[in-house]
């Protein structure tokens, strides 16, 4: 059960049960849908972008504990950040969940570091990154649903 506790950290379970910023954003000027066909996880990420700055961010949808907690903590982390910060954080986060390593010179992942346990469960990497892929699509203004496949 040691590995499992690494994956299902208290913070992750808590966020999956009570996700933050879980709502439609009335003032959204960007949004995108993300879908993982393998497990049926499905999220919409809403953004209120002002110039290069993420003024507000929220999400809605259904998914497993990992994907939901990841989406919840992503929205918390990104509020007030710039587009470039978001891109850098995604890079760092992706590295964390695939290798378990945080990048020294990358921006601070802060609380997102709890997702390092995901790297021990390769099939769950897509769960952890679904919201981030969706965010990226929303930032790029893509209209299509992004898919993890």
């Amino acid at each position: 059960m040691a590995d499992l506790r690494e994956l299902y950290q208290e913070v992750i379970l808590e966020h999956s049960k009570a996700p933050r910023n879980y709502r439609e954003l009335a003032a959204a000027n960007h949004s995108a849908e993300g879908y993982n066909p393998l497990c049926g996880d499905h999220f919409t990420v809403y953004l209120n972008l002002e110039g290069d700055s993420i003024r507000d961010i929220s999400f809605q949808g259904s998914g497993c504990a990992i994907s939901k907690a990841s989406a919840s903590m992503m929205t918390q982390t990104l509020k007030g950040k710039s587009r470039a910060d978001a891109e850098k954080l995604f890079e760092a986060f992706r590295k964390l969940v695939t290798t378990g390593q945080a990048n020294g010179d990358q921006p601070q992942l802060g609380k997102l570091a709890v997702f390092s346990g995901v790297s021990e469960f390769p099939v769950r990497v897509k769960c952890a990154t679904l919201a981030w892929h969706t965010l990226q699509a929303a930032l790029e203004g893509k209209q299509d649903t992004v898919s993890t496949e």
């Binding site: 393998l38 939901k68 769950r124």
Partner: peptide, 26 residues
């Protein structure tokens, strides 16, 4: 309150192989 995908991962740690998802029957 528990997504099937999480059920599958935890059971797998117990050596139990089940399938989770839509089973090609959306």
């Amino acid at each position: 309150g528990i997504h099937p995908h999480d059920v599958g991962t935890i059971l797998d740690q117990e050596g139990i192989a089940i399938r989770t998802g839509h089973h090609c029957a959306q």
